[in-house]
Computed example of a mutant assay.
Amino acid sequence: MSLDFSGQNLAGANFSYADIQGANFTNAMLTDANLCGANLCGANLCGANLCGANLIDVYLRNAKINESTKIDSKWRLVWEIVNQGSEGQNLSGADLSGVNLCRVNLCRADLSDANLVGTDLYNADFSYANLSDANLSGANLSGADLINANLSGANLSGADLINANLAGADLINANLTGADLTDVNICNTNLRDVNLSTTNLSGIDFSYENLSGANLSDANLSDANLSNADLSDANLSDANLSDANLSNADFSYANLSDADLSGADLSDADLSGADLSYANLSDAQINEAREIDSKWYLVWEIISQGFEDQNLSGADLSYADLRNAYLIDANLIDANLSGAKINESTKIDSKWLMSSLGDCQSGI
């Protein structure tokens, strides 16, 4: 049996996260009541006074509201969206933060500059919607349909995008730092200049995607598929790219300083002009036809093949990661080891170590 609160004075009452679906609040006084997270599905709110009530994350599906219901404009708009749909509607700049819009139809809606911080958008339909410059920080977009949506400049930091469909979406200049992209579909997505720093992207498929100019610093891309991706001018400093598939990718002029490329497949990738200072190249796959500066190719050879008894006189090994390198009996006369990383596992004659110690990052 549904609860009957009709005509009652419930000002300031606490109904937070209560299951009161189908309850009768006709003409009830609910001013300043706490209804945060409450389930009001099918509830009768006709004539009720909800001014100042906390309706964050409240579920209003099939709730009854009429013209005499006193409710803040934000929540009346939420009720309209939930119960009437807003396909193609102009909601530009709307404040929809902290509301429950799960499974709503916002296909082709204009939500540019909208405030959707912390909003529950589970399984919502945003296909072809305009979300440019919208703030979706911390929003729940798991399972959401964002096919061909315009998310350029949007703030998606910390958002839950698990199983979301971003196929064909425009994410140019979007902020996705700390977002959960587990099992997300990003086929044919424009990720140019996107901010994915510190984000866990392990195992994600970025093959053939446009990530030029993207910020992927400190991102976890271990085991990711970036084959044939455009990462030109991207910032991958301190990124974890271990065991990633980077074949045929464009890393021209990318920042790969301090990146972990151990075990990565870099066959036929373009690394021309890339900054590989302190990059870990151990067990990386690089072929002779590579577009890579001769300095870093030499560093890779030293790390992967060793240079025992080899002539490295005059070689530029500055700022190279030479930890675990084998350089016993190598000729390092006039070699530049300034700033190179050398530790106790580096096999190098003490003669060269002592002569260059002041310029090396010893023990790092």
Results as ranks from 00 to 15, higher is better:
Asp270Lys: 09
Ala274Gln: 07
Leu221Cys: 14
Asp258Trp: 15
Glu291Tyr: 12
Asp238Gln: 07
Asp230Glu: 02
Leu281Pro: 00
Ala224Ile: 01
Ser247Ala: 15
Asp270Phe: 06
Ser282Leu: 12
Glu288Thr: 12
Asn215Trp: 13
Ser197Met: 13
Ser313Asn: 11
Phe251Met: 05
Asn280Lys: 13
Leu201Cys: 12
Leu256Tyr: 10
Asn220Pro: 04
Asn280Val: 08
Asn235Pro: 12
Asp316Gln: 05
Leu211Trp: 03
Ser282Gln: 12
Leu298Asp: 07
Ser212Asn: 14
Ser304His: 07
Leu221Met: 09
Asp233Gly: 00
Ala254Pro: 03
Ser232Pro: 04
Asp260Met: 00
Asp270Ile: 05
Ala234Ser: 12
Leu256Asp: 07
Leu201Asp: 04
Asn228Ser: 14
Leu236Gln: 12
Asn255Phe: 01
Asn311Ile: 09
Ser304Tyr: 03
Ala219Leu: 14
Leu216Val: 09
Ala244Met: 08
Ser282His: 10
Asp258Pro: 00
Ala214Arg: 06
Gly203Glu: 05
Leu276His: 10
Ser318Pro: 09
Ser222Ala: 15
Asp258Cys: 14
Asp260Cys: 03
Ala239Arg: 11
Tyr208Glu: 13
Ser318Val: 08
Asp205Gln: 02
Ser262Cys: 15
Ala264Val: 08
Gly213Asp: 12
Ser242Thr: 06
Gln305Arg: 14
Ala259Asp: 08
Leu241Pro: 09
Leu211Arg: 06
Ala284Trp: 11
Leu271Trp: 07
Leu261Gln: 03
Leu281Asn: 00
Gln305Trp: 01
Ala224Trp: 02
Ala234Pro: 03
Gly203Thr: 04
Glu308Cys: 10
Leu201Lys: 06
Ala229Pro: 10
Arg290Cys: 12
Phe251Asn: 04
Phe206Gly: 00
Ala244Gln: 04
Ala259Lys: 12
Leu241Arg: 12
Ser272Lys: 04
Tyr278Ala: 10
Asp205Pro: 00
Ala259Gln: 10
Asp238His: 15
Leu226Val: 09
Asp309His: 13
Asn255Ser: 13
Glu209Ala: 15
Asn240Leu: 13
Ser272Asn: 07
Trp296Ala: 00
Leu226Ala: 09
Leu276Glu: 10
Asn210Pro: 03
Asp268Met: 03
Asn215Lys: 15
Ala219Glu: 14
Tyr278Cys: 06
Gly306Tyr: 04
Ala269Arg: 12
Asp218Met: 08
Asn248Met: 04
Leu216His: 07
Ser294Gln: 15
Ser232Glu: 06
Leu276Cys: 11
Tyr253Cys: 12
Leu226Gly: 08
Ile303His: 03
Ser267Leu: 06
Glu209Val: 15
Asn225Cys: 09
Asn287Trp: 05
Gly314Leu: 10
Ser217Tyr: 02
Phe206Pro: 00
Leu211His: 02
Leu256Lys: 02
Leu266Ala: 11
Ile303Trp: 01
Asn280Gly: 13
Asp260Arg: 01
Ala315Glu: 03
Gly306Val: 08
Asp223Val: 01
Ser257Ala: 14
Asp275Arg: 09
Ser277Phe: 08
Val299Gln: 07
Asn210Gly: 07
Leu317Gly: 05
Ile303Met: 06
Asn200Asp: 15
Asn200Pro: 01
Asp243Val: 00
Glu288Ala: 13
Leu281Met: 04
Asp270Asn: 15
Leu281Lys: 03
Ala315Lys: 02
Phe206Arg: 07
Asn245Cys: 08
Asn245Gly: 09
